[in-house]
Design a binder for these strands. Sequence first.
DNA 1: TTTTGTGCAAACTATTTGCAAACCG
DNA 2: CGGTTTGCAAATAGTTTGCACAAAA
Lengths: 122, 122
Amino acid sequence: MTRQRQLIYDIIMAEPEHRTAEEIYDLARAQMPSLARGTVYRNLGLLVGEGQIGKLEMPDAPARYDRERRPHPHLVCQKCGKVEDLTMPDDLLRPFALSLGEDITGYELKLYHICPACRKRA
Amino acid sequence: MTRQRQLIYDIIMAEPEHRTAEEIYDLARAQMPSLARGTVYRNLGLLVGEGQIGKLEMPDAPARYDRERRPHPHLVCQKCGKVEDLTMPDDLLRPFALSLGEDITGYELKLYHICPACRKRA
DNA sequence: TTTTGTGCAAACTATTTGCAAACCG
DNA sequence: CGGTTTGCAAATAGTTTGCACAAAA
């Protein structure tokens, strides 16, 4: 675990925000100006691979990273892209998944809305 | 509605497959070799904008297009990317969405699995 | 004929990769 | 030391865009 990987990890863990790679890069460079963008992507990939953080692909926008690794749904603002974690009633999906008779290896649920901040602005 | 847009639309409507832009481009070129890749993207964007077709962003893979425009969940193979439409028990998500007290404008639900073909191969 | 869409190529965005030098154990 | 990781720059994948010309309304 290098200095740069620790820094990237700490930034993600520090807040519930779901940051993009670019945002993490900017935040990290405030503390380590020599940090390269490629290093951020490499370490994000590694952390995701190890299951230490989650990755959230966003439609028509850069991916975001999530400190909460347990699978859970997200509430996404369609205007600004801001993401909130949701807690899913534990077995809402289970009956549905089971009814498929398939081995479901994972799921991804996004609910879209316009966040209060964006609604006010309009 | 130009010849090229009609062709692209027909290809999507012809089968339940969820094709990528590139696949649609190849299929279309078989009938209209002069067709440009940019034209495919432009028209897919237009059709999506008009709500005539659906767009499905895929993790770490090109987007796929869906002839079924009503919102519905998808079953996605993690190996080959093949997508199937699912019919959602109509109000599985509704109570969940309502419990948020938010105006949910849409949702996206993907269930992941390894499709039979890929499982056999392994 | 006025608008709209096309083909082509170049541009762009997000991300990945090759490589020599720097770092960690 | 000896494998791992970095910084940098160039490469890539998917998609978008500017522009001169062609097709549609």
